[in-house]
């Protein structure tokens, strides 16, 4: 079971690394969207600081949302998803491997580049750890919940808008606590409450979302 997890993880990483330009797209999108806001609203540091947590978090969320397609779509189209479902290993574990690979390829880069965007948006230095840790705990949940949405819409043609309609309402708690953590940190207060909540949601999503995704795949991707 563990070897299956490990091999599937390696396979997904290897496949993704063979087309690095595709890998960079969500990251560029993230930076691009964030840098639109100073242009559209106001470039003064005070205004930027006030909207920074929300802008960075919403952009991260949209960037993950747009990259979700990669999770199952290609495997569904070339038939490897059918092979995964036929394998004797629990589908839940395989799903977990795929989601983990997805997070390593999209979520983690977002976390790593976030400090730079924090500087763009003139977030004070003492709030940067809160930004990084909230994203570190929050982005895996985005991938896990997103996996449920993708697996439900994998067989639908042009399911992109449908996917956002399904997934975005479920993302709201993460957005609230993620952005709030950064906001509170900028005021110099403790953020452990918000981070603990994000951690709790991560634990819940980690245990339930792969199960729901596996069930959804058996429903929609069977042919």
């Amino acid at each position: 079971m563990l070897t299956a997890f490990y091999h599937l993880l390696l396979r997904d990483l290897r496949l993704a690394l063979r087309s690095p330009h595709e890998l960079a797209n969500p990251l560029i999108f993230f930076v691009l969207v964030v840098s639109l806001f100073p242009l559209a609203v106001s470039p003064t540091p005070d205004a930027l600081r006030q909207m920074a947590p929300g802008v960075i978090w919403v952009s991260a969320l949209l960037s993950v949302l747009l990259s979700l397609d990669r999770l199952f779509k290609q495997d569904y189209e070339d038939g490897s998803l059918d092979q995964l479902m036929l394998s004797p290993n629990p589908l839940m574990i395989l799903v977990l491997a795929k989601v983990f690979a997805h997070w390593l390829l999209t979520g983690l880069p977002l976390v790593l580049i976030a400090p730079l965007l924090g500087l763009f948006m003139s977030v004070p230095n003492h709030a940067l750890p809160a930004l990084i840790f909230s994203l570190l705990l929050g982005t895996p949940v985005l991938s896990l919940i997103g996996a449920i949405g993708v697996s439900l819409t994998v067989a639908v043609n042009r399911g992109g808008v449908l996917l956002s309609l399904i997934v975005l309402p479920l993302y709201i708690p993460i957005l609230i606590f993620g952005a709030n953590a950064v906001d509170v940190a900028m005021d110099g207060m403790r953020v452990s409450g918000q981070l603990l909540f994000l951690g709790a949601v991560l634990a819940l999503a980690l245990s339930l979302a792969p199960l729901a995704t596996a069930v959804a795949l058996r429903i929609t991707a069977a042919r």
Partner: peptide, 16 residues
Amino acid sequence: LLAIVGVVNIPIIHYS
């Protein structure tokens, strides 16, 4: 399945 996922999420959304 989506409705069931939603029902698990409603309390979380509500309290957050």
